[in-house]
Structures are given as structure tokens and as C-alpha cells.
Nucleic acid binder design. Structure first.
Lengths: 227, 227
DNA sequence: CAGTGGTCTAGACCACAAG
DNA sequence: TTGTGGTCTAGACCACTGA
């Protein structure tokens, strides 16, 4: 463990031991730096990290205090599906079920910030792990946002093509639960109404929305992270 | 926007514009610092932040390269339920449905790393938003990990009492979807089998496991974050 | 107004891993 | 072996905000 990480750990321990109970003010950066015998910059790094995880709150002039009602922050890793499946030691494959140009349904147009009926490309894909249905992907692509030609997605998934072509765009992601509709039930091989874990992603560049995708995961899917 | 944040934005834009395509190596810290006219420390800060979000990978001697297959990392804020409801402008209330000492069921004992039949305290709580069922909480508490007396939880929720008493412990959190069981259906006022969003949390100190809790959210619940 | 955190600098040494 | 990122230092100025 490096220096500033050791200091961070020690501060965590002292907070957990209630040396500074929730709401209490810690000594200033300068005082703590002196106590630990490090430069103020090092102390700042440790404290900034604690603030980033929501353990303490920092304000100029007011100082650093232990969060009274902590809002824990967890980092969620969101890999592409292929990676996710391969990380389990399974083989990923996919089947492109639908590929057609279509005007945006109203809900999709609103979510993407496009006019209703905007021309989009619609893709429907089934992802498989070791040949078993893993997730159903329902995607809308904005061809205007993509300069080059769009592949036919028979060999490469839209996700992988996009991260290679329009890498590192921004967006939002949402998680929810929903009953399987007729199409999801058929494709995933489950009963209609089965509880499914849903991931919805909106991706955009500064210039234009790129894609909106809804992933319905087969039963048993769990999203896990350290806290 | 501060200096290092502006540099981070600019680097993001240059990567998105494929000046450095996925897998490409960026100039060294020193070179970039010279280009932007800042100290190496400032450059390091911007690059470290990009690495933390998974956009670039950094290794000593090998340099900084754009992540070939980006694993995006999103920060998830996990507030206590009261805060979550109040943030929507609704009023939080709760009803303690069950409070009893009971031996741990096998699944709970395994999850908490305790011997089977370990004596635990079991709490069942319904959380309401503006009087409407919001979430059903099914909690197991390890009294051994709690030094002081345990309140009766009629007035304070277990969650709020815990964060005030055993603040800032570590643990894991998992999200999934499941059909409503008979109890959840009854308490939340939904049909049995309804798709519910499930949050499961395990919390521990270094010394001992503290609590295991399963939250079943009423339909319509969504967990949203920026990407 | 004055004290606090936020940021930046110029320099240094070290750990690591690629060549 | 040596170039790269990772970390640390001592100092400085500034922005914010509570007293």
C-alpha cells in the first residue's frame, strides 16, 4: 500500500472507531499532514479520495466533516456483453434477429431527444452464453451520428462495433425489473411475465444521440459490486 | 471548469475524435504537460482520472493507451431509503412488521460467513413514500457485532440506526430481478409473481459480519446513473 | 475579513516492466 | 537496463464561504 492509501485506511479506521463520529469536524489538512508527517498535498489526496466515496464532506472554510448521513458511492464496472460472458468462462455468440430502417417510436424519440418519426436503424439481437440465451438486445441506432458505412452486424455486435467506431461517448444507464413481454419470452425461452433484469443505456456524443438500447437479461442475472 | 478538468475534457474529445484510436499510445505525461503548458503533476491528475473511468489504461514503462475494449465505470450513489424518497419530494414513513430473535437460515448464514443456526435478530420493515408501499426490507442483524443495546426500531429504521452506530463499514451490493413472493405481494400490494427490483446488501466490519438485507422495490423503481 | 480546501508548480526519487 | 508512470515535497496563489 502506498503512502496516501495507508493514510486513507488509517483515517477510515479512526472514523469507524468513532474518534470522529458522524457530523464531527476533522482537523485541517495542514494539521493532519503534520500529524502524519507528510506534505499537505499527500494529505489532500487521501482526504479527496474519502470525499469521493462519500465518507466525508469537504467545504472551504467549513473544513472536513464525517458525513452525517453517508451516501455510499460504489463503482460499477460495465463491460461489453462479450467480455462479461467470457469472464464467466463461457463462450459468447450472438444472433441478429432483426435489422431494418424504421422511424423512431415516440418513446425512443423522446429518450434520444430526436423528432418523432426520425429515421433510425433498428437492431434486435440475442446474446448467448455457451449456446444458452443470455440477453435480448433491442437497439435503436441514429445513422446521422455515424459518419461511415454501417456494417450488417452479422459477424460483429453493434456494441463492439460502436465502441470501436464512436469510442467513449457519454450517456446514462438505468437498471430496473420488468415482466417478460411476448417477444422476450419467445426469444429467451421463458414464460411470459417472468421477472427480468433490464438495463437501458442512452449514448450520445456532443453533436448527436447515437444509440438507445434495452437489454433484457435471462433469469438469474445479478449485478454485483463492492461497497 | 478547473485546469485539470479542462485538460481531461480536451483529451476525451481528442480520443472521441479518434486522434488516438482504441489501442493507440498517447504521448508521455511529460510531453503532454509541455503541450498544454502545465506542470507534470497537473497532467498526471487528468490522466489518472481518465484511467479511473476506464477510458485509458496506464502502465509504467508501457505508457498510456486508449482502452481497446473499454470497460466503462459508473459511480453509483446509494443513499439510505429515507433520503431516496425525500429526494423525490415525497414523505418517508416505515412500519416495522416483524422483530424477533431467530437462528440464521442456511442461505443467510453462508452469505454472512457465520455458522448455521447462529443467533441473529430478524427485522421485517415496509417503507412507504407518501403512504404508498415503496420497498419491503428483509433484514438479518448480527447482535454479536453490535456492542451497545439494540433499539426496538419502532421510530428509527435499522439502516439509519446502523449508519449512525457502526458507520462506514464495508460490504457488497447486488442488484437483480425476482418475482414477488407471497409475503412481498401481500405487503407491497401487488400480484404474486410481479417483477420486482431486488437490492441485496452485505455489510461487515473487519471483525464480524453486521447485517444482511434484501430490499424488494415496488414496481416502477429505476436505478439511474450517468455513464 | 480570514481560514479553509482546491489547485498548481518545479523538482525529485522510486517501482515497475518492456526491450 | 532504462523509460515510464506513481508518488511525494515544499511552496504558492486562489476561490469560496463562514464568522
Amino acid at each position: 500500500m502506498t503512502g496516501w492509501e495507508a493514510i486513507r485506511s488509517d483515517l477510515r479506521a479512526r472514523i469507524a472507531a468513532r474518534q470522529w463520529p458522524p457530523g464531527a469536524v476533522l482537523p485541517t489538512e495542514a494539521a493532519l499532514a503534520a500529524e502524519y508527517g507528510v506534505a499537505r498535498g499527500t494529505m489532500a489526496r487521501a482526504l479527496a479520495d474519502l470525499a469521493a466515496t462519500g465518507l466525508v464532506e469537504r467545504r472551504r472554510r467549513a473544513g472536513t466533516r464525517v458525513a452525517p448521513v453517508p451516501v455510499r458511492r460504489a463503482v460499477l464496472a460495465i463491460p461489453v456483453i462479450r467480455r462479461e460472458i467470457e469472464a464467466r468462462g463461457q463462450v459468447h455468440s450472438h444472433r441478429l434477429l432483426t435489422r431494418r430502417a424504421a422511424p423512431a417510436p415516440l418513446s425512443v424519440a423522446v429518450a434520444m431527444g430526436l423528432p418523432a418519426e426520425a429515421p433510425l436503424l433498428h437492431l434486435e439481437t440475442l446474446h448467448l452464453a455457451d449456446g444458452q440465451p443470455f440477453a435480448h438486445e433491442w437497439r435503436w441506432l441514429n445513422p446521422v451520428a455515424l459518419s461511415g458505412p454501417v456494417p450488417d452486424f452479422a459477424d460483429i455486435t453493434a456494441n463492439e462495433w460502436l465502441v470501436a467506431t464512436v469510442p467513449h461517448a457519454t450517456g446514462e444507464i438505468a437498471f430496473s425489473a420488468a415482466p417478460a413481454g411476448p417477444r422476450e419470452a419467445e426469444v429467451l425461452g421463458v414464460a411470459e411475465g417472468t421477472a427480468l433484469f433490464i438495463t437501458e443505456r442512452m449514448t450520445r456524443t456532443e453533436a448527436a444521440p447515437i444509440t438507445s438500447v434495452r437489454l433484457s437479461h435471462a433469469p438469474g442475472y445479478r449485478l454485483v459490486t463492492a461497497l
